[in-house]
Design a protein around this nucleic acid. Structure first.
Lengths: 214, 214
DNA sequence: TCCGTATGAATGAATG
DNA sequence: CATTCATTCATACGGA
């Protein structure tokens, strides 16, 4: 290549020692760093756990410096900030949502994007996601509030076309309580933090239901 | 209600003591059970932690029965959460996608499924869906407008597609290593268990994404 | 500083 | 296959 620019392992080099990375590449790196940060953090946790164990067995080390990680903060996110609609953009988006409420098609998305671009940086993906979320959430709002009726009411807003809602009286109360009326849940949920409801693949066996024949 | 069937709190009762629940309701229950299982487990962990601490302070109880939970297994998942590819599986899927990019036929799907099953629960439907989505999204991203003609476009402009992989030589090697060749990752990943690296291995870019730079 | 909520984004699954 | 839905993750932000 007689060019001044050339690629080396996918990297654009200007031949002067300057390398150029795309945003995607930066993002990849960022994620990997994040991964390692997470792993390291876990290792530190283990380290602490083991140390603690040793402590209990009389192997404590008096040296206060024996825990080099205690104050080490893992900055797992050289994170890239996410897009946020400008007030002007949001206004337009909202008004459009009121009108159609349906997700605009690709062409429409493009038009909207171009229009909104006048008020600030924005991509089609941003617009697309916005409508998707807007719709999903407005729907959930309506579906989430009504469900609280803690009694009577047989067939309210059955969203699914499946058979009627049928739960044992006690179960219904229980569910209702657990889902919407137990103030503790939220707190405890937080308490256990990420533990959330980890998916244990071992006991999860999805029934084959897709018919690929055809 | 002179019917033999009637609803009580959303539950269908046949009047003979038999109750019928919908899948949805079962799912709700399932989730709650799962949540409680998780909470309980957390409490046990705390209990153990405290016990251990007391041990180290000489408050050990010699009674071997002082730990009623040690052998108690929490079946936290009557779960039916959606499938998610394990890192190992994703790696394989991605590599396969790179090669063919076309949806594998029924037979091929089956083979792949069997292969991937070694790394975790997975069904043919999962594999099928994955390819469908993978392609649809890779296409969408391609069809999306280049970040809105924001004039200033530097070095990389042609961006023919996936081959526009341009990373610093060192970074390329590093990424490559981190992504596909580090034998440790798998192990550590297992080791840290649930912590599960909280990232979307989606190296497949969703280019064009504007941050709030303006 | 911690916590809860709002929301952009990611992605498995479903639908036409 | 093209779209859309539903659910979940992660972060920014505001209040106690």
């Amino acid at each position: 290549m007689g060019e001044e620019e050339q690629y080396q392992n996918g990297v654009l080099s200007d031949g002067l020692g300057v390398k150029v990375m795309t945003d995607e590449q930066m993002e990849m790196l960022r994620k990997q760093i994040s991964v390692y940060a997470t792993i390291c953090e876990s290792l530190v946790q283990m380290h602490k756990a083991i140390s603690a164990q040793q402590d209990s067995t009389g192997m404590r080390l008096a040296n206060p410096y024996n825990d080099p990680f205690s104050s080490y903060a893992f900055h797992k996110i050289p994170s890239r900030q996410r897009w946020a609609p400008k007030p002007a953009q949001l206004e337009i988006l909202e008004s459009m949502f009121e009108q159609s409420s349906t997700t605009p098609d690709r062409q429409r998305i493009r038009e909207i994007t171009i229009q909104l671009a006048e008020h600030g940086p924005i991509s089609e993906t941003n617009v697309y996601n916005w409508f998707q979320n807007r719709r999903a959430r407005s729907k959930r709002k309506q579906a989430a509030l009504p469900p609280i009726p803690n009694h009577h009411d047989s067939a309210k807003d059955k969203k699914t076309k499946s058979d009627e809602t049928q739960v044992d009286e006690n179960l219904a109360l229980m569910l209702n309580h657990m889902y919407f009326q137990s103030p503790d849940i939220g707190g405890i949920d937080q308490l256990i933090g990420q533990t959330e409801v980890p998916m244990s693949y071992s006991s999860y066996l999805q029934v084959e239901q897709h018919d690929l024949s055809g």
